[in-house]
Design a protein around this nucleic acid. Sequence first.
DNA 1: CTTGACCCTGACCCGGGGGGAGGGCGTACG
DNA 2: CGTACGCCCTCCCCCCGGGTCAGGGTCAAG
Lengths: 251, 251
Amino acid sequence: MSATEKQHWWVGELAGATGLTVRALHHYEKVGLLVPSERSPAGYRLYGSADVRRLYRIVALRRLGLRLDAIAALLDGRGLDLADLLGRQLEAVEDQMAEAQALRSRLTALRDGLASEVEPSIDQLIDTMEAITMYERYYTPDQLERLERRREDVGEEAIATAEREWAEIFATVRGEMQAGTDPRDPRLDSCRRRVRELLDAMTGGEADLRASMNEMWANEDPETLTRGMVDRELRDYYMRMFKAPEGMSAG
Amino acid sequence: MSATEKQHWWVGELAGATGLTVRALHHYEKVGLLVPSERSPAGYRLYGSADVRRLYRIVALRRLGLRLDAIAALLDGRGLDLADLLGRQLEAVEDQMAEAQALRSRLTALRDGLASEVEPSIDQLIDTMEAITMYERYYTPDQLERLERRREDVGEEAIATAEREWAEIFATVRGEMQAGTDPRDPRLDSCRRRVRELLDAMTGGEADLRASMNEMWANEDPETLTRGMVDRELRDYYMRMFKAPEGMSAG
DNA sequence: CTTGACCCTGACCCGGGGGGAGGGCGTACG
DNA sequence: CGTACGCCCTCCCCCCGGGTCAGGGTCAAG
């Protein structure tokens, strides 16, 4: 109680010192998180040193993303297992990171998917979104992330080159199909080899990626998947190219 | 207009089909995003096939995290550069990912920092938070992430071992200090070597981490930094251990 | 006494709906 | 033909963490 020590602070001083706004301090009072211990005769809020200490704790806890009611409960010692609270907070943050990552992955996929268009239309955007949704049905979030990282690693040019290669391959295969060539004919060996190389480049040889890709390729509409480049007939011919001759079951 | 084709849907059907709630569809109508083109005599909302198509687009765009007003603007063709919108959305998502990552990093650091306590108190939590805030002042987010990854890589046991080693080193150094040994005395060479090894283990030999660490070590209160293990006197003695003899300037 | 910076309360606003009250329809079954 | 059950309607308040007025009082220096 020495006369030289400051007894109380006005709301503006505290706001300036903590980086909060006056309005925020009003709000904290309203929800019962920080009620100034005194008022001046004119009704001004007067915060004592205990209030100030409490405020600094509030600010620290806010940096963990805790909600105001959780902070109040903590500071007032009302139950709440600390470790448990932090654990649940961590879980919530990880959930929202996963959500944000999914969003980002969709947005970048969309950007890449629309990059070739001069002025992309909403229709194209929706189509691409449907393709993305399809991908999300077949790949786990983890797999999608790995695919994305691979795309980043190989770079845009390599991807553009690969796209052209696929187009060439499918053109060649379509030609053989229309010529009536047997899909297992050795004449298609070079195509098969190039396909294997391309797939290896896309998946980095990871088997689970390959499995998910095959699953999608077998079940989904190829026209949607390849944006019109491959129709069902060609897709079925293509799949027969890689089937072992004995494995032809009637199912 | 064939009689066999369904002309319209009730809200509940659409809600069930899209995974939205009836309430959400009411909301979309209120904000003008999706207004059913008809009403039954009793006032029931009747959605036509165009409405349904629009709704599916809304759902697709919502998966990008777009706001309802942005979606309405897009679907109504009101200006809005598509690429620009997606770019800004991506930026926003990346901001919120960075924020979530900062939160997660604080929470895990806190968990690790409090792991040694049986039943951590709020006071200890606040102290640890202050230490974390200090770290954030000296390391960039990127550096913090690298430090964290290194901690994960070396594992808990190695960290605990390192902690014990630091304690031993500081005990030894304190002994020499109290015995009046010159900080540059060769007798401390083995300590210096162990310190260098430990720092290398912590930073993986990355120079910028080392620089930030030195900065913090030089400027901050060592008692806070080491939770009371090192006081200012010992810190200063320790720093002189690594200074070149000629480099002693008066500034 | 005035001026300018500070303070007060009260109220509405944001986003994307959740939840419920109170009451009207649709339709299948007895 | 009644009735039971599920669906639908509108209207209203609630969440969270404050932002942003509006309208008026207070403090300290000149």
